[in-house]
């Protein structure tokens, strides 16, 4: 079963940890805020998905499995 990734742009502070951790799933828009480019990522290391959520300083990222 593939994971589902959501990001709350209202709390994102643009620190960029998620992009550094997993650029295949996360990006930053023109304002520097998070964009989930692959909400249902395929073939991505689940540990890196969890890491992106855990390391988000603003708790903006949710990973549902």
């Amino acid at each position: 079963m593939s994971a589902h990734v959501e990001a709350d742009r209202d709390v994102c502070i643009g620190a960029g940890n998620c992009v550094m951790t997993l650029a295949a799933v996360f990006d930053q828009d023109d304002e520097g805020l998070v964009v989930v480019t692959q909400p249902n990522p395929d073939g991505v290391d689940p540990e890196l998905l969890d890491r992106a959520a855990v390391m988000c300083p603003a708790a903006a990222i949710t990973v549902k499995t």
Binding site: I13, G14, G16, V19, M20, A23, Q28, D30, E31, G32, L33
Partner: peptide
Amino acid sequence: HRRLRMMLTAEFMVA
């Protein structure tokens, strides 16, 4: 805080 920080986030983004 957020109002001012958001004016800078793009400047320091990873890309």
